[in-house]
Design a protein around this nucleic acid. Structure first.
Lengths: 157, 157
DNA sequence: TATTGTTATACTCTATAACTATA
DNA sequence: TATAGTTATAGAGTATAACAATA
């Protein structure tokens, strides 16, 4: 049987999914995730741990629960994520003397260096994924995505 | 210690994540997923199985592998997803007589009814999530998301 | 009583490798 | 030899419930 070009492209018949923003958000996010993983190769850093590193860098001394609330990660799931970053020597975890239930999180020098390396890789990754976007389009997209994030109160912890 | 309003809102200090399209895509997609799940309550249908139902409806007789390629789902992972839909009585799976290795997938009458019910729920869900968006903005967003999906060739099967 | 962190557990989605049966 | 489907398995992400220590 001859393989036509239309067939080899699988013809993209997504039926009722075509007009759904939710579907295309999911696929676009997935495409970003695949390229993100490729961009991070060799660092051992994934999307979620990178988010934690960025938040800790932005608010040194922040505790686990607060990081989770900012990123939409449940307390229970923060534990192993922070353990991983501490084990990698990227995050320092000390008892918060103003609230001895909590841990104060900061980046180690290695954590700061890792953040810088990741940010350089992510800059290239974002340029790659958005090569066809003008600066105005990129700003418009960011604004729309932020509006969607706020459209529903994300349940936390 | 007094809790200020800024503190209770957690102050949204996402640091280096703020300008990253990949981060906001992920959070926006997640917000859609949460509201999607709420919208589907009682149907037993999740995002991925809904995608399969929609693709089968759009291409009756399509086989598992083709559905997977359209949706970015690996062959191995299609098996249990199709089993689930067959067990729910929504999808009919018969041997494709033109290629006896493959299964021809079609929706049962119950599957067609489920699709209609889901589409009505999803219509309300999308309107809810995009309440602040004009028709032009929505079209612009869809166009941008489709461009991102194509920015990287998604590896399939 | 409420909150921080913890453990245990489960479900969904995704990934790879090896197998069978057909083509 | 390539492809359709299958099985087994593993890693991530996310969800809930119950507990100890501290506020």
């Amino acid at each position: 049987m001859a393989i036509t070009q239309a067939m080899s492209r699988e013809n993209t018949k997504i039926g009722a999914l075509a007009p759904l923003v939710g579907y295309h958000l999911r696929r676009a996010s997935s495409a970003f995730a695949v390229d993100f993983a490729a961009a991070m190769e060799g660092t051992g850093i994934r999307q979620v741990p990178f988010g934690i590193i960025a938040v800790v860098a932005g608010s040194p001394g922040i505790n686990q629960g607060a990081v989770g609330r900012v990123l939409g990660i449940k307390r229970a799931n923060m534990v192993s994520l922070i353990n991983e970053l501490v084990d990698m020597g990227l995050v320092d975890r000390t008892v918060d003397e103003t609230d001895r239930r909590a841990f104060a999180l900061t980046l180690t020098p290695a954590g700061t260096a890792m953040l810088e390396d990741c940010l350089a890789r992510i800059d290239a990754h974002e340029r790659r994924m958005l090569a066809s976007f003008s600066d105005d389009e990129k700003a418009l997209l960011l604004d729309m995505l932020r509006r969607i994030e706020k459209a529903r109160v994300i349940p936390l912890s």
